[in-house]
């Protein structure tokens, strides 16, 4: 196992390097965007004089590399600075948003992942049956509509017609877990519908792919029942791509849900990031961007390690 530990350590170290690269990339991106914070906030009312005064106050008149290094030295000491626009501490700004984002992601994942994997397994087991086809068509139809449109349809049915769930996911107005689950049910359901198809189809494809291997044929000739073949022989060997696609979708649930946040007015990190990019609020963009990047990296390291553990050949090397 020391080999694995070394691997984990080296991957985490690499993750830190990746984070640096991401932060530099985001910084360059914001610098390249047309307009700066002063222009974005003053908008139509800007004049050359007020822009200059605003920039001086924010320190935007400093050369870019100095601003970046200044920010970086703060971060290394654990200080993410203040939002340029609202002068609030970035850490404070992020904390509630972060909790909201993680809550919604967990809500959707806890439901979506098991359903997707089980459906995928069943579809592979009962290949080309009515079940396989209808699961397939249902899942495909769900993902072939834009997220906001799925959300609108769910709102039409569950809020306007039936009146069961609210259209605004106002998590700030509830104080019990049950209340929170109720308030955020529609955004969670939207996300579940969006991610399920991808994971289900990949599970099915990976299993079917393995079913063609000679050792499966062997097992089957030995008279092992079909479900046992799928579960004991095919699944372990198909785990790597399944784990990867789950990791991708988990990452998506955390970092990619800005459209759902907008439709349900849910105060998550995605909207914060879009707002911060729109106003060129660099410390906020960096902090959210780094969190997203960190999440993504950790999920991937986890996925890679699990893939290795699931494949004896990779586990022991050669």
């Amino acid at each position: 196992m020391t080999r694995l530990q070394k691997l984990i350590l080296s991957r985490l170290a690499l993750g830190v390097v990746t984070l640096f690269a991401v932060s530099a990339l985001m910084f360059v991106g914001i610098e390249l965007l047309p307009g700066d914070l002063a222009q974005q906030i003053l908008g139509q009312s800007a004049t050359a004089e007020t822009l200059a005064a605003f920039r001086a106050e924010l320190g935007l008149d400093q050369p870019p590399h100095l601003r970046y290094l200044d920010w970086l030295s703060g971060v290394v000491q654990g200080d993410f600075g203040q939002s340029l626009a609202s002068r609030r501490d970035v850490a404070e700004l992020l904390s509630t948003r972060l909790a909201n984002t993680m809550f919604l992601a967990a809500y959707a994942a806890v439901i979506a992942v098991p359903i997707a994997v089980v459906l995928g397994l069943l579809a592979a087991l009962w290949r080309n049956t009515l079940f396989d086809r209808s699961a397939n068509i249902g899942a495909l139809s769900a993902i072939s509509m834009p997220e906001f449109f799925v959300a609108y349809l769910l709102i039409l049915v569950f809020s306007i017609k039936l009146g069961w769930f609210p259209t605004l996911a106002r998590i700030d107005s509830v104080d019990t877990l049950g209340g929170a689950l109720h308030a955020t049910f529609l955004p969670a359901l939207t996300l579940i519908l969006v991610v399920i198809a991808h994971m289900m189809r990949m599970t099915r494809a990976a299993i079917i792919n393995v079913l063609a291997a000679p050792y499966i044929e062997m097992a089957r000739l030995k008279g092992v029942p079909r479900w046992r073949v799928v579960l004991r022989h095919a699944l372990p060997n198909a785990l790597a791509p399944i784990i990867n696609v789950i990791a991708l979708n988990l990452a998506y649930l955390i970092v990619g849900v800005v459209v759902v946040e907008v439709v349900f007015s849910y105060p998550g990190l995605g909207q914060l990031l879009v707002d911060a990019v729109a106003s060129r609020d660099f410390p906020v963009v960096q902090a959210v961007g780094l969190f997203f990047a960190g999440t993504y990296i950790l999920l991937n390291v986890a996925a890679d390690i699990l893939s290795i553990l699931s494949n004896p050949r990779l586990r022991h090397g050669r």
Partner: peptide, 10 residues
């Protein structure tokens, strides 16, 4: 990883 670590829509 760097490319993917930035949310695609952003």
């Amino acid at each position: 990883d760097v490319l993917m670590a930035v949310p695609p829509l952003i």
